[in-house]
Every structure is written in structure tokens, then in C-alpha cells.
Amino acid sequence: MTISVNTSVKVGITVNGEETTADVEPRLLLVHYLRDVLGLKATNVGCDTTSCGACTVLVDGESVKSCTVLAVQADGQSVTTMEGLSPNSTELHPMAAAFRAEHGLQCGFCTPGMVMAAVSLLEENPTPTEREVREGLEGNLCRCTGYHNIVRAVLSASGQNPDAVQTTSVDADADQSPAGGVESAPGFSTGSGA
């Protein structure tokens, strides 16, 4: 058996439904394949540490941070970017439309990644609670909106009425308590007795 070790690799990736191929350096990050090889500039880079999620795209339907995936790792797979969601600016995908209706974006830089993360979230959890939306988007940072309207947009896109689901009262969201009973942090204390 011989396995080749290569300094240049040919990749074939289906992006937004179209076959793409290129010879690339193995170190080429998927986000740069999308932006610089294919010219799809919606997907942004906001950090160096897999923290901000601005580069989130779908690989085979699941959200990933394309700054932490090599293009060659996506060889043979299917990638969806925000450009692939809506056919054009007048026919917005339901998630994108919800972001507009709820004013879930301001400067727009986090938006492509946020929208893709939200699409993936609803794929796994079609009717999330507000808390589940917040934790489901924990890997995507936004500096402009305070997330309030992003959460509304995702709830709305899930077919729920944000006014009914979003909780702003001290009593209604006991699950956010820093130590509800013996818990110590929202979402991060689990156990058989919890």
C-alpha cells in the first residue's frame, strides 16, 4: 500500500450546489477557499481562535467554523454559505427574512455566520426555547445587537411568537439562575439528580 503525502492537493467541493475544484496548499483554510479561491465573500473571519463564529458555514448540513477546517478536509463534501441560502436579495431564506424582520443585524459582519449557525440549530432542534437558542448560538459573537433581536429572529424562524417565548421577567426564567438549587452555571451543570 502506498499513500501519497502531498504539498499540493486537488480538492473537489460542492459549494452552494455547484461543483468546485482547485489545486490548493494543504494548509489552505476552508474559509479562504470560499473567499479567495471562489470569491464568495459573505463568510467573514473575525478571530484567530475558533471563538467568534463569523466564518460559520454548513458542511454536509452541519455548522462548522470554516477558519478551523482545512479546505482539503471538506474534499468531496457539500458546503453551504449564506450566499447559498437565498436565491437573491428579494427572495430571502426564512431565517434571513426573520433576521431582517426582527432587526437581528446591524453592522452585518457576524451575520452570515450567525445565520448559518441558526439554520443548523433549528435543524437539530426545530422548536427551541429562548435558553436553547442562546446556548445554541454560544459559538457566535455579535458586538452590535446584544443578541436580543437575534434571539427573536431565531424564535420567529422556528415558527414561535417571540413576544410569547422571550422571557424578560425575573420569575419566568429560573433556568438562568447561577445556582438554581445546586447548579452553578447556566447550561453547564447536569446530573442524574438535576
Binding site: S51, E135, E138, G139, S184, A185, P186, G187, F188, S189, T190, G191, S192, G193, A194
Partner: peptide, 15 residues
């Protein structure tokens, strides 16, 4: 199985 278990993770931010 049914043995008692728990995970307590202390962070400032969720991720």
C-alpha cells in the same frame, strides 16, 4: 446505567 452522576463545569462564559 442508573448509577448517580453529575458534571459541574464552572466558567465565566458558556463556551
Amino acid at each position: 446505567g442508573s448509577a448517580g452522576w453529575a458534571y459541574e463545569k464552572f466558567t465565566r462564559r458558556a463556551n
